[in-house]
């Protein structure tokens, strides 16, 4: 019995010593904060061609292709997003703009080319599905670290990479009650996330399937969100990703929403 206790204590020590000095200084909240920054705020700005594959449990596929551009305000959580839909045909040419604010509701507009109309849309639905996929708006544009409380549970290895395992609990009642994230200890990208529902059952799993270095920035270029309860999943691939294009805040305007520059959507 004593031996067993000793073993447990030793094991615990080993694990604690595995947590690097740097992390010992970082609280769980700081790790999450840093991870969100690396995942959603990489570079000064960004542009990518995004392909989404929505696959139902019978294997039937639906595809969405979009161009996405992002601009970050310096020393602030504020961002601006622009999205242009290439496919499918019934939404071709539709554009979408988000001004993400730190302290108030985001502002969102959609441009409907068929009637040449810009419409403001309500933005209190961060946990709603993004274009019918398994990803929510928040999964695409990021959440605030302060919306959850975080506890560092463990350190592990995922895909041969040492990671932090963090358990986060939303402060408000939303679709998930608990989120586990496995965050790369070196580049702070989330490699895996599990979402648990009100019954404390696992219902959604995020995986970073491919990480590539683009310029100086490690980037998750392929990712999947799977709803394990319905069997539906969405695979997303970020292609032609570019950073630091010197986009300006004023580029995220109604003018460009109605008529995006060709260089944005090529």
């Amino acid at each position: 019995m004593r031996k067993r206790i000793l073993l447990v204590v030793l094991t615990l020590f080993t694990f604690v010593s595995l947590i690097p000095a740097e992390a010992a200084d970082l609280t769980a909240a700081q790790i999450v904060e840093k991870s969100l920054k690396e995942f959603y705020y990489q570079g000064k700005d960004m542009k990518a061609r995004v392909s989404m594959n929505l696959i139902d449990k019978k294997g039937r596929q639906r595809k969405r292709t979009l161009s996405i551009l992002r601009w970050d305000k310096e020393n602030s959580a504020e961002q601006k997003y622009f999205i242009y839909f290439h496919k499918p045909g019934d939404v071709r040419g539709m554009t979408f703009m988000v001004w993400k604010h730190a302290d108030k509701n985001d502002e969102r507009w959609i441009f409907i080319p068929a009637v040449n109309f810009v419409k403001r849309i309500a933005a209190d639905d961060k946990r709603s599905s993004f274009v019918g996929s398994d990803f929510t708006y928040e999964d695409i544009s990021g959440r605030s670290a302060s919306a959850e409380t975080h506890v560092l549970k463990d350190t592990e290895v995922v895909n041969d990479r040492p990671v932090y395992l963090i358990e986060s609990t939303p402060k408000e009642v939303i679709d998930y009650t608990k989120r586990l994230s496995w965050i790369d200890r070196e580049n702070y990208l989330p490699l895996k996330e599990e979402f648990y529902d009100a019954q404390q059952e696992l219902y959604k799993v995020f995986t970073a399937d491919e990480v590539a270095k683009i310029g100086d920035y490690p980037t998750v270029t392929k990712r999947t969100m799977k709803n394990v309860k319905t069997g539906h999943k969405t695979e997303v691939s970020y292609d032609k990703t570019e950073y630091d294009l010197n986009l300006r805040e004023k580029d995220f305007s109604e003018r460009n929403l109605r008529k995006p520059p060709r260089s944005w959507i090529k």
């Binding site: 108030k104 509701n105 403001r120 309500a122 933005a123 209190d124």
Partner: peptide, 9 residues
């Protein structure tokens, strides 16, 4: 005029 107010538009 159109804007965000009362949790909607």
């Amino acid at each position: 005029a159109q804007g965000n107010l009362f949790g909607g538009i």
